[in-house]
Computed example of a mutant assay.
Amino acid sequence: MSARPTGRQAIVLRATDEPVAGTTNPPPHQRYRHPQISLEPRGLGPLAPENVRVEMLYAGLCGTDIHLTECDRDTGYVRSSAPAHLPPEGRILGHEGVGRVLESGTDVHHLQTDDIVAFASIQACWVCDTCKQGAPNQCPEARLLGTEIDGLFATVADIPAVLALHVSSTPLADEEIQAAACLEPAGCALLACEKTAIRPSDRVLVLGGGPIGQYAALAASRRYNAAHVQLIEPLRVRRELARQWCDEVATPDQLDHALRGGVDVVLECSGDLSVLDTVFPAIRPEGRVALLGRNGQPLHLKNVDHMITNAIQLVGSRGHLGGPQAQALALHRNGILPLLAPVTGTLSSLDELAELLQDPARAVQGHCKLLIDLSAT
């Protein structure tokens, strides 16, 4: 038996805690300034009874990670509005990934050493009324992995076992391990598709061709068999990728033309809420809109009468708890939802990731989904 690790390397984010004057309970983009990324050693203390200790194999880079490391040039505040708590000692980033169980806490009985596990990113309490009513994504006591509790950008991670999704008890091919690292964003996309109840007769418009947008378009086309799926995305590399599973792909400048046929379902994955005012008049009666992208900006709609008259539903969609990740894994294994399809590159180490996050805009310009190979770190 190999010796148990006592330390690890981890990607740590620190920022100045300086809330905007006059704000109450400010979100991160109004609280944290001048983010700094470092790759540093971190010790491993005693394993908490409810946790598992995991040797990380692959992790996924998310827009939330990027937006927490980017800042406004004028104010210095981070771009992310997703819930975050960055203590003085820093936060280990990362909420998408897959690893091998090294050790289980004394209260963990459903996982064994060497099990392969992927992770949910929302730690719900599971005992409040909201959780008991079947809405753990909206748990008021929820904490987010990699932003409010330490995450997965590490060689070894101590994670609450309730977040671990058992993927396999037997060795997996490398491609299957990589696919498991993509379950978190795929689960988020599937949940949004479920919330909007996509039907085979629907015309679906996806705004934003990042990873979640790509998975949403894939699911709408191949899981829900929508009649027509179109995606709007400014970056060419992401448009070209989406052509494989979308009926139409266009730039934001071509949005008016894309709306001429009308739409039944809108999946807003870009965070640019200003576009919705243009989209709303083209939404057909009984249309459904799901908001996934965050940027902390307000939503302004001039066409509220159209929304009322046509009974258009507007919902927020956060997370993936309640089964979408397991569904995504099953769909992948059945050839319906290829989880690796949006992956356009793999970083070879935490060192390479730390260097990239010094200039996070580079992670967006030439890629869609980036994975990090942690198996040799």
Rank of each mutant, 00 (worst) to 15 (best):
L44M: 05
F119N: 08
A120P: 01
Q244I: 01
S81H: 08
A157C: 06
E18N: 10
Q230C: 13
A15Q: 03
P136N: 05
C246W: 07
L331T: 02
Q358I: 07
K132Y: 04
Y32P: 00
A15H: 05
G22Q: 05
L339H: 12
T155Q: 12
T251P: 00
P140R: 05
H320Y: 14
A290E: 05
A311M: 11
I149R: 09
I198P: 14
A328Q: 07
P160D: 06
M56L: 15
G45R: 04
A180S: 13
V127A: 14
D264C: 06
L102C: 11
V343K: 05
G90F: 09
R53C: 00
C139S: 03
I149P: 02
P342C: 08
A282N: 04
T278E: 08
R31V: 03
G209H: 12
G134A: 09
E40P: 02
T64S: 15
L102E: 07
L241N: 10
R199G: 02
C188E: 06
I232D: 00
L207A: 12
A180M: 07
L267T: 03
A10M: 09
Y77G: 00
I177A: 04
L39I: 10
L292G: 02
P338N: 15
P88D: 15
L371Q: 13
Q133R: 15
D202V: 07
A217C: 10
E141S: 14
L301N: 03
T251F: 05
Q9H: 07
E55R: 09
P136D: 12
A282H: 11
P19S: 09
R143T: 11
L13T: 06
S104R: 15
N334P: 01
S274T: 15
V78D: 02
N51E: 12
E18T: 12
L339F: 10
R294F: 06
C125R: 14
D305V: 14
S221V: 01
G105W: 03
N310M: 07
P338Q: 14
T113E: 10
P281Q: 05
Q313C: 09
R238W: 03
E352R: 13
D65F: 02
L292A: 06
R243I: 00
